[in-house]
Nucleic acid binder design. Structure first.
Lengths: 352, 352
DNA sequence: TTGTATGCGTTATCAG
DNA sequence: CTGATAACGCATACAA
């Protein structure tokens, strides 16, 4: 028999404590069955007779029963919850990925727990620890490079995880695309149009694997085509519109003889274009701009710019499917990064 | 004494079950104290002697102890978790708000649980139910109008909540800004420049309080200044770049004699501008475009457009603070919407 | 098909 | 300051 008296008036733990929400036992009492039966009626309908099931459902509905996830988590030893660590939430394509991830997971009943470093000293390790303490069944790590500590934590907790936006699968399964190929596409395109000296506005490579890989890929591609990546036209900065604007100003005022500038993402590109626009520099006649398309708005920007389209949404979905597979089938499912599509959306005009 | 044998070999529940993570009891055993002491050492340091505290901390660290949130939630009757329902995650300013919300909450140890309807039949009510089942201590409802059902659920569960981006506080505390004032600013601006007949591209007003309020505010402002909001230049659509593009095409091809079009958000505006650009329509000489600035990139768009800047980030922070207040002080703290700043970022040129 | 009893890992209460 | 012990609400193995 249960230790909590159901018939008595519920004793508030504290004076200000909110009224206790309905529990399985309350439903059971109302339906005139045992708690176990209610539990089964709700989550294993096939194990119960239709009649009692109806009675239970009605009772549950009548008192507005909502299962207690914490109790359920304790009993089942899983929370139906997945954590996501998401740097630079605002000015990146991460929202798109997160949306895709959330949708994919939600279809199987999983909920997403968010942790977004505010680049004001919040440590990834702490966020992961918090997420683990919340009992996430799995974890998605977006962008950036994470301290070894994080992976140690994940290992001791036995929590499956997946990294997004990287190819470096030394530490675990990854979902990403080929930065080298992306870079090559842009560079080839620019080279075909006769550009020789190009610049680059990208994210800080320090502690940012995405930015690092992007720059590295670009340098390889540039070398391969015999172009020059001019140092006096290469800027590392935070991602953001204002940052793109400022970076382009610096390049422009520096007088570097580049004829094209590649931007690490759309925000930077939009900012850069705004700077050129304001300065009255004709694009692409005087200076071409190219970009990697993190977002959906690059194709709509003016003036047109060469863009490599990155399959953001697909990455989120793929990551979600991978985690679900690990979570459900216990089958790790080869974690090889999916092949991804790269598309030139608009053409950077020939040099003037 | 505990019922689980700590010294014995842990019995796996199922053959495939992952190794159990370290528990309070494991730490206790290692540190040579009782579980209760470990609990206190970790979460109420002031109740414990420095010596044992150190010993416990070291033991916990050594075996990589991470507290079990579910168990903690059961005992404490709270999860240190806040839910957020977020429609249209991808193409809106919601990421910015969510980031602000998350940061504000994280500072006090709260984690954000995400639910993002995919407008493919996923019901808000279900998401709220799921979030409640996860045990969220409070809930943030962004955008849209929610079914009565939702509020009933929240009431029976006694879960505090806050709505963002609305002024309609009939159903509970809200954080929002004055849509009427925002609309008036745009309209006054356009009127001052001599525009008389204007169009509008906005979100579907059906089931979208934001869009509805925005249109209503616009209509009031237009009437007040004696302008005309032309029906043949008013388009309701999904938010998005492509949608803005298409809407403007429709208006343009329809031949409506408007001289200015107001867009419900930046995505729509960007799309509309792209359409005009592609069609070779000079902006703002032939047609002016104005917009509400949901995002941070409007000021960087070309050509310049009148923009009302909405305090997105502040809304997220305000909502976070409100929830924290309710959660911690038990003091509801008057839920009046904060006054918000409205700023004209760029000027829409005079009519040509 | 249904009822009963136990355990899940913490916190909190109450003695010592 | 510390140790034992009782909830917390649910799932599940076992009995009936």
């Amino acid at each position: 028999m249960s230790s909590r008296p159901t018939a008595e008036f519920p004793t508030p733990t504290k004076p200000n404590a909110r009224a206790r929400a309905a529990s399985l036992e309350d439903v059971a009492a109302l339906a005139g069955v045992s708690p176990g039966t209610v539990s089964r009626a709700l989550s294993r309908p096939e194990m119960i007779s239709e009649a009692t099931r109806q009675r239970v459902l009605e009772a549950a509905d009548r008192i507005g029963y909502v299962p207690n996830g914490a109790a359920r988590a304790m009993a089942m030893r899983r929370t139906l919850t997945v954590g996501a660590v998401i740097p630079r939430f605002g000015t990146s394509s991460f929202p798109t990925m997160v949306q895709a991830l959330e949708t994919t997971l939600a279809e199987r009943g999983y909920t997403l727990l968010l942790a977004a470093p505010d680049n004001k000293g919040s440590q990834t390790t702490d966020m992961v620890r918090t997420l683990l303490a919340r009992g996430v069944d799995a974890l998605a790590l977006l962008g950036s490079r994470h301290p070894q500590e994080v992976f140690a934590l994940l290992k001791t907790q036995g929590t499956p995880f997946v990294q997004l936006w990287t190819q470096d699968d030394a530490l675990g399964p990854c979902v990403g695309f080929d930065e080298s190929q992306a870079a090559a596409l842009v560079v080839d395109h620019l080279a075909d149009f006769g550009h020789r000296e190009i610049g680059f506005i990208g994210g800080y490579t320090r502690n940012n694997e995405r930015a690092e890989a992007r720059l590295a890929g670009l340098m390889r591609a540039v070398a391969k085509r015999g172009l020059t990546l001019r140092e006096d036209a290469t800027v590392e900065t935070e991602y953001g519109l204002q940052q793109g604007f400022d970076a382009m100003e610096r390049i422009r005022l520096g007088g570097s003889p580049v004829s094209a500038v590649v931007c690490g993402n759309d925000y930077l590109a939009a900012g850069a274009l705004a700077a050129l626009d304001q300065a009255g520099v004709p694009v692409p006649q005087r200076l071409s701009v190219a970009s990697f398309n993190d977002n959906e708005f690059a194709p709509f920007m003016h003036p047109p710019l060469t863009t490599v389209h990155l399959p953001i949404q697909e990455m989120g979905e793929q990551a979600g499917r991978h985690l679900l597979a690990v979570l459900q089938n216990q089958a790790p499912e080869a974690a090889a990064p999916l092949p991804v599509h790269l598309v030139i959306r608009r053409s950077t005009g020939p040099r003037g």
